[in-house]
Computed example of a mutant assay.
Amino acid sequence: MSDERAAWDAVGDWYHAWFTGIVLTAVSRRGARDAAELVFGIFRRQQRERFLPGLEKLGIAGLPPAVAAARYHYLSNAIGGVGVEYVEESPRKAWIRYPPPRWVWPGAAICGIPSEVNAAMLRGWHANNGVMLGCLRLGFVCTGQTVDGQPGLEGYYFEHDRDLAPEERLRFARGERMPRFDPATAPHLPADDWPAERIAKAKRGYAMEYARTAMQEAVALFGPMEGGHLLGLAARLVAMQLYAETAAALGTSTFAEFMVAMATAEGDAADAAPQDDGSIIVTRRGCALLRGVADPHPAMMAAWEDLLVGALAAADRFAVLERVGPLAWRVRPGE
C-alpha cells in the first residue's frame, strides 16, 4: 500500500505541476489579463461542478452560509494536501487562510504569478459562493495575498444585512488580519467516512481535477488551436522537468514501464508488449484525466499526449513515440 500511495502522490505532483505550468505559460505568452481570465474560468467551472455536491459529501450542507463556505474550503483543500487554516468568529463571519508555502503556486513559481491572476481565483470561486448558496448577502473579504508579499492568502466570509451587488461580493481589506488558528477547534472529517485510502485517492484526484479543468477552459477561452498549443507547450516543458523524479518515485527504469506505471497510478489498466523490431507498444484501457469530460476536443487529447512527448525527450531524446491507436503508442528506442 505504501508503494501504491507513493505512486498516487507522484501522479498528483505531475498534474499539479502541469496545472501550474499552464497558468505560468499563459502569463508569459499571453499576458496577465488573459491568464487571469483563464484562472477565473477554471475556478468558476470547478465551483459550479463541485461546490454544492461537495457540501453534501463533507456533511456541512445546511450550516449558515458563511460557515458552510469557509468549512468547505478548509476541508476540501485539506483533503487535497493544501495547507489551510480556519477560524469561525460567528455564524455570520468565518475566516480561511492558506499559509505559505502556497500549494497552487509551488516553489519559485509564485514569483511569476501577477496579483490579478491570483485575485481571479477569488473572483471565480470565493466571491460566488453566496450566489450558489442562494444567499446574496454573503461576500468574501480578502485581507492578504501571498503573491503580493503578504504572509498567506487569507480572508473571511461575511453575511451582510442586505443583498450585495456583483461588484461587492469580493472586497479587499489589507488592514485586517485573521486571528491565530487553533487546530483543536477546527472542523474535521468523519474518520469512518474518510479512511486514509480514500483521502490518498482524493488527493490524487484533486490535482488531476485542476489539470482537467484547465484543459477545458484553455480550449474554450483561447480556441482549440491557440489553447491547445498553450496546453501542449506547458505539458512538454513540465514533463521534461519532472520525468526523472517521477520515474524514480514510480520505481521504473524504462520509458515503457513509466507509461504503464503512470496509467496504473491514475486508475487505468495498461500493458507493454515488446515487438519483433525492438519497439514496444504500450496500450491503455482508458484516460482517467479526460474521464467525465463530455465530448473532449481532440486538442485536449493532443495536449495530454504532449506530456508523454516531453517525458520521452527527457528519457531519451533519440527515441520516438508514435501513436498507433486511440490509446496505444509505439516506443522506438533511440539509435
Rank of each mutant, 00 (worst) to 15 (best):
D3A: 15
E4I: 09
R5K: 13
R5Q: 07
A6V: 08
D9V: 10
G12H: 02
G12A: 13
D13G: 11
D13N: 12
L24K: 07
L24N: 02
A32S: 15
R33N: 12
A35N: 05
E37Q: 12
V39S: 01
G41S: 14
I42G: 01
Q47K: 01
F51H: 03
F51T: 04
L52Y: 08
L55E: 01
E56H: 12
E56W: 10
K57Q: 06
L58A: 13
I60S: 09
A61V: 10
A61Y: 00
G62M: 09
L63N: 03
L63C: 01
V67R: 01
A69T: 06
H73N: 14
Y74V: 03
L75E: 01
A78Q: 15
V82Y: 04
A94R: 02
W95C: 15
I96Y: 04
R97P: 01
Y98S: 02
Y98M: 07
P101S: 06
W103T: 08
P106M: 06
G112C: 09
P114L: 11
P114E: 09
S115Q: 07
V117I: 05
A119K: 03
H126P: 04
N129K: 10
G130A: 07
M132N: 01
M132I: 05
L136Y: 05
L136T: 11
G139H: 10
G139Q: 12
T143S: 05
V147K: 00
G155M: 12
H160T: 10
H160D: 11
R162E: 13
R162K: 15
L164T: 09
A165D: 09
E167I: 11
M178H: 00
D182L: 04
A184Y: 00
P187G: 13
P187Y: 03
H188N: 13
H188P: 04
E197K: 00
R198A: 10
I199S: 08
G205I: 08
T213A: 11
T213Q: 05
M215C: 11
L221F: 00
G228M: 07
L230K: 07
A248F: 05
A248Q: 14
A249F: 01
A249P: 01
G251F: 04
G251L: 12
T254P: 00
F255Y: 15
A256K: 02
A263L: 11
A263H: 05
G267C: 11
D268F: 01
D268Y: 02
A270H: 06
P274W: 00
G278M: 06
I281H: 05
T283Y: 03
T283G: 08
T283I: 09
L290G: 05
V293C: 06
P298L: 13
P298V: 11
M300V: 14
M301V: 07
M301A: 07
A302Y: 00
E305C: 05
G310Q: 06
G310K: 03
L312R: 04
A313S: 07
A314W: 08
D316I: 14
D316A: 14
R317L: 09
V320P: 00
E322N: 04
R323Y: 00
L327I: 13
V331Q: 04
G334D: 11
